[in-house]
Design a protein around this nucleic acid. Structure first.
Lengths: 253, 253
DNA sequence: AAACTGTGTTCGCATATACGAACGAAACGG
DNA sequence: CCGTTTCGTTCGTATATGCGAACACAGTTT
């Protein structure tokens, strides 16, 4: 591990987590780096707009935006995905997500916000353990029990009282889901939220997934079929589009 | 200037420019760094998903997406802006932009694509000299000739035969535009493209701008008033929204 | 007004990093 | 098929970077 590089990474990830108004001392304390060393790195990052220094307060700079935008720009498919998610929200009224699997985690690539004031709070770019989320289970849908154990060598940690922590239970549930063509989840990653998700395939391999997250009190069984059909429909459209591209997305697709 | 940090920056900016399939030797040649040093840095960047290494070919990694998304997430106003631009494209049919001023350059923060197959190619996150673009002139609209000279100490370089290279001409044109409340531009930054732009203000200070870019052959004078009114209307709505927030956007707003 | 907290410098010393050459492997071309 | 080129990797040494302490300065609190 290259220390100077690691430090730059730590600084950047820390500043985007905090967003703004981070002081030199905060960096030093949280990242355990001497202030004199920090100052040299921070100054250079400011020169190139990765950070902004406003009388002692550091904030995330526009270069971070440019990097992310340039990355996204390589994947025009995402524009199509966003429009599909917008349509899906129009139908269902609840927050919808699109994400890919990255080493056992869901990486959220796109979302469309619920029309309701009370809505989910996951932001694009975040990573969450796949086994506990609806969209994540859709991404793992083809995994056997052995494969799951390999992905999560430290076991399945609970996030709520409903989180599945037993590999056998998870594997058998995925087995069923594979037949049904969709996954559901009730308060396994967050209290009061249930979820439906459908995998997106390219050449029959799961490469991404679409999901909708619904507060339990706004759900009722009558809506069930309509929700599942709507999500399946969007996942199918996205699958067809992705089939035609050769985009890798950081070699995830 | 801190060399290791500068190198990380150079590597990241180079990889997003190239997008994918960059070899160790390419980095070494283009960035003038010894291969042995590069290897240590690249390996660390791969560990943290800033890069991906696929049998010798490096590509941009998902961490870049996460950084950019986290940055954007701090500015919910951008979602509103995107919807406004979408509406504007619905009215005008041509590519629309939203951007801010950063040291004499326009930084494009949002865009909505034209419905026509032939359209502008500027992507979000890019920077272009403000004096030559429509949106950029809207951002400079309150500047005097002296202020312009301070921003561009090396003078105004031409990009097309129409680019304004004389400070006096630019300043007097901005003076007129300030009265009209909008800026126009004909093939000053790109051949075959003309542009209308309107500044977005916060507390009466220009903090951003909205523009529409139209291929010259699709423009005719009858549309003029409608275009200008539409852009002004959107800029006004965005102004009102920004007034209510205290977002800085990398201390640009 | 003095004590405290935090930023940004400076400086000498110890050390981790950078460098370039040399090596091995693979791809290319005649 | 073998020489040639290109690429990635390794390694010992030189050097640039990292470190911690001390200091000046500014703002805030006691």
């Amino acid at each position: 591990m290259h220390q100077p590089t690691k430090r730059v990474i730590d600084i950047l990830e820390y500043i985007v987590k905090k967003g703004e108004n981070v002081r030199l001392t905060d960096f030093s304390r949280e990242l355990e780096m001497p202030k004199s060393t920090l100052l040299a790195i921070l100054k250079t990052l400011c020169d190139y707009k990765f950070l902004v220094n406003e009388n002692g307060m550091y904030s995330a700079g526009t270069a971070l935006f440019s990097l992310g935008a340039a990355f996204t720009g390589n994947f025009p498919t995402l524009n199509f995905v966003r429009k599909q998610l917008d349509d899906l929200v129009g139908l269902l009224g609840e927050t919808c997500y699109f994400g890919v699997l990255e080493e056992g985690n869901v990486l959220y690539l796109e979302k469309a916000d619920s029309l309701h004031p009370l809505r989910m709070l996951i932001t694009t770019g975040r990573r969450l353990p796949a086994y506990s989320t609806g969209i994540g289970k859709a991404l793992l849908i083809d995994c056997s029990e052995d494969e799951l154990k390999k992905i999560y060598p430290d076991g399945l940690l609970p996030f709520t009282k409903n989180t599945i922590t037993d590999f056998k239970v998870l594997a058998s549930q995925l087995e069923c889901a594979k037949n049904d063509g969709y996954v559901w989840e009730i308060e396994e990653s967050m209290e009061h939220i249930r979820c439906f998700a459908v995998p997106v395939r390219k050449n029959s391999r799961v490469v991404a997934a679409v999901s909708v997250a619904i507060p339990v009190f706004r759900f009722n069984e009558e809506k069930r079929d309509f929700i599942i059909d709507s999500v399946k429909n969007v996942a199918q459209k996205i699958s067809e589009t992705i089939e035609q591209t050769d985009a890798h997305f950081g070699n995830i697709f």
